[in-house]
Amino acid sequence: MNAPSPYTLPFVETKAMRHIISILLENESGALSRVAGLFSARGYNIESLTVAPTEDPSLSRMTIVTTGSDDVIEQITKQLNKLIEVVKLVDLSEAAHIERELMLIKVRAAGKDREEMKRMADIFRGRIIDVTESTYTIELTGDGTKLDAFIEALDKTAILETVRTGASGIARGERVLRV
C-alpha cells in the first residue's frame, strides 16, 4: 500500500508523516465501505482503521492511521469530509493527543520459560488473561511502539498468535470531537 498517491504535487516536497485522523460518522451500513473505498480508489495509505458506535448509537467513531505528505493529508481530510455520512473529523496529530492500541498475544509458556514469560508481561504492564499448561494469553495496551517493543522483546519462536486492534485516539485536554 506504499505506492505514491496520484495527488502528490510533484513540485512540493514535504515528507510523508504519520497522521491519526478521527472521524464521527453516521452509524449506517455502507459508511465503512465508503471510507475504505475512498482510500483504495485514490491510492491513500491506511495503516490501521478502528470503528465502533459511540454513546449516541446513531454515530460511529472511527480512527484511521495513515501516512502522507501535507498535501496528501489535506486531500484525505477534504475527500473524507465530502462523504455524505461523515459528520465531523479531526486530524489528531495536529495537536497533543493520546493513542492506545490493544493487543492480545498467545505465547508458548512451558517449563523454564513460563516464569520468564510472566516477568516479561509484568515489565510491560500486560495482564495474563488465559492460561493453559503450555501457553499464556497476554493482554497489552499502549501506543503502537510499545506493542512493537513487547513483540521485539519476546523470543520469536515463543509467539503463537497476535491480534492487534489498531490505534484509537483522543485529544488531550478539553478539546472534544462531538456533534
Binding site: 495527488y7 504535487l9 512540493v12 486531500q75 477534504k78 469530509n81
Partner: peptide
C-alpha cells in the same frame, strides 16, 4: 464550491 478541488493539482 468543492474544497477538495482546491490545491489538488496546483497550489
Amino acid at each position: 464550491v468543492d474544497p477538495s478541488s482546491i490545491s489538488k493539482r496546483v497550489k
